[in-house]
Write a protein that binds this DNA or RNA. Structure first.
Lengths: 328, 328
DNA sequence: TATTAGCACTCCTATTTGTCGAATGCTATC
DNA sequence: GATAGCATTCGACAAATAGGAGTGCTAATA
């Protein structure tokens, strides 16, 4: 579709703009393309007609359009080699053999946020389809106890519980034993039902203060089921981007970052590393989201990177790719 | 020091400015003070001389100075009665008897952030001087296990651990038993030392892969010791304040909010509800921090509220007071 | 036919200028 | 001591101005 010079021109415009955040003039590209500004203007007019670049006003230089970024990402961009420094930082994580996969991901996304100055997101797998492995209860005072729930995939949740009446240690133990007997192996999403219809009737029979205890555990479990597992790094980085140098936009983005539902919608379905430029993503039309799935013991999570549309696509893709490979 | 009319004048200026964020003119106070604007100007000149109010430019209306806020808070302000709505919201938390104290605090500070549109902070007690109550280990796969540590005050921390070599279940159990025997009752801050000098020599004797296991637990414990316990609500609220309508200031504040050290320095030492206006606090000279200690089973935490200097002091103090009373 | 030089044109940016209105401080008077 | 009145100051806004960066177009050139 584009000839060699046009391709080179688009490449220069995109990469220059990524670096400087300012419209690119025909003049500034003369040397690189080895021709006069007039020629470049002619070519620019063409690229603009196809919709790959835009002007900010009638006599301004050009900036890439969304379509332009897309073309660049799909057809022009080459993976960028990582610097030794970047590799070094990441190797420290991957060579630490005592780290569990999820911790390694956490740490490496933290590092990537620092390297790139973009915002990174780790969406841990939901525990919904985990199965209960163990329920543990440790008394703290006469009235307070801590309930710990562990799933087969190694997720742990705990909740401190206040008993409104004195309950005998013995009865607590009985209840826990019962729960462990009846509920273990049940998926988290079904625990409350099982608790209601199988456990409750039985403890009602032989535990005196069963209501109190039952409610306490019921609450603990429902909290667990609804807990989401999101980590964000470098949220503030986005505020530093020159294109977001107005309070309106900053407020808008910060609000979106604080919205759990929006952040949870980042979850990736497709395979590979996927790039959603501007209006292609559901977060904000001025942002680009790059994300990919990861797999931990059959559980799927998502790692993502959020930055301005003017993102160092080549660098970022290479980084994510590097992580993806090291995780296997 | 101030006569009645001067006091009333300062009160009007402070409260007006809190509401509108704009300099107050002499004219606008005529009705309230029942005298002419010229008279008010004379009084204003006096208040300005003492340093209680300021002009933003030579012919502007007046705004309270830091000293003015201080005088208002110390001598003029009266606690504001809470609205039924506010009380209702908070009662839902305090009447829930199954909530542990820390959860009740969390929830109520969340609500206060919503009510006031300021930022609230809960600094949980540090676990440093807690004593170890129990160590539990649950195997997930052959190589992965989750270690759970529980303290006497009911704090729980867990860490998933990857073993770099196969370790027999039996040996893990032995190690855990040993730790439980030797380390229980030790303050968290001393656990690593005890681990190093008391546990390590012994497991070296009768656990084959003791290095692997020892390291795993050592890491788990040090993570625990360093974990801080901070909750912030409504961080973004501060961005909405009209006085912070410039990106520079927003960036500055967001950066400070993201800095763990700065946030941890909010910890309150004094008794009662304390107000730190502008340069009186260590966060930012354009902010006011109001904070108070709370006590949970002998452990001390801090709850705080961060807003612009132009804060609804009466409302906020009453709210914090209400919480403080209900926590006892 | 592709390239380029040259020029008119557009629009952004920054600076200046002027006007209006909202305040003030001061003075003379009540 | 309180007030009316007036000159004065300054911010906010709009209009005017100048400079510069960049474009599109046309005609000449290779």
């Amino acid at each position: 579709m584009l000839n060699e010079r046009q391709t080179e021109l688009l490449k220069l415009i995109v990469e220059d703009y990524i670096k400087t955040a300012r419209p690119i003039s025909s003049n500034s590209l003369c040397k690189a393309l080895n021709c006069s500004s007039a020629t470049i203007r002619n070519e620019m007019a063409l690229l603009e007609e196809i919709g790959l670049i835009e002007k900010t006003h009638i006599s301004s230089g050009r900036i890439p359009s969304e379509k332009g970024y897309r073309y660049y990402v799909d057809n022009i961009m080459k993976p960028k080699e990582l610097t030794g420094e970047d590799v070094l930082k990441l190797q420290q994580v991957f060579q630490n053999k005592s780290l569990v996969l999820t911790d390694a991901i956490s740490k490496s996304m933290e590092i990537i946020s620092e390297i790139t100055n973009y915002t990174t997101v780790v969406l841990g797998p939901s525990s919904q389809d985990n199965r209960l492995t163990k329920v543990e209860v440790v008394p703290i005072t006469e009235r307070e106890l801590v309930a710990i729930v562990i799933t087969d995939k190694g997720h742990v949740q705990h909740k401190n519980i206040m008993l409104s009446e004195n309950v005998e240690l013995n009865e607590i133990k009985q209840t826990v034993d019962l729960i462990n007997k009846l509920v273990i192996g049940t998926p988290i999403s079904e625990v409350s039902t099982t608790l209601e219809y199988e456990v409750k009737p039985i403890i009602a029979n032989y535990v005196k203060q069963h209501e109190v205890l039952y409610n306490a555990f019921y609450n603990a479990f429902s909290d667990f089921a609804s807990a989401s597992n999101v980590q964000m790094n470098g949220r503030k980085n986005i505020l530093m981007q020159p294109e977001f140098d107005n309070t309106e936009k900053i407020r808008e983005i910060i609000n979106k970052f604080d919205d759990k539902e929006i952040i949870n919608s980042i979850k990736e379905e497709g395979n590979g590393i996927n790039i959603y430029i501007g209006s292609e993503n559901d977060i904000d039309e001025d942002l680009t989201v790059i994300k990919t799935k990861y797999n931990n013991n059959g559980e799927e999570g998502t790692i993502a990177l959020i930055g301005p549309k003017r993102m160092e696509y080549d660098h970022v893709v290479t980084l994510l790719d590097y992580i993806k490979q090291n995780l296997e």
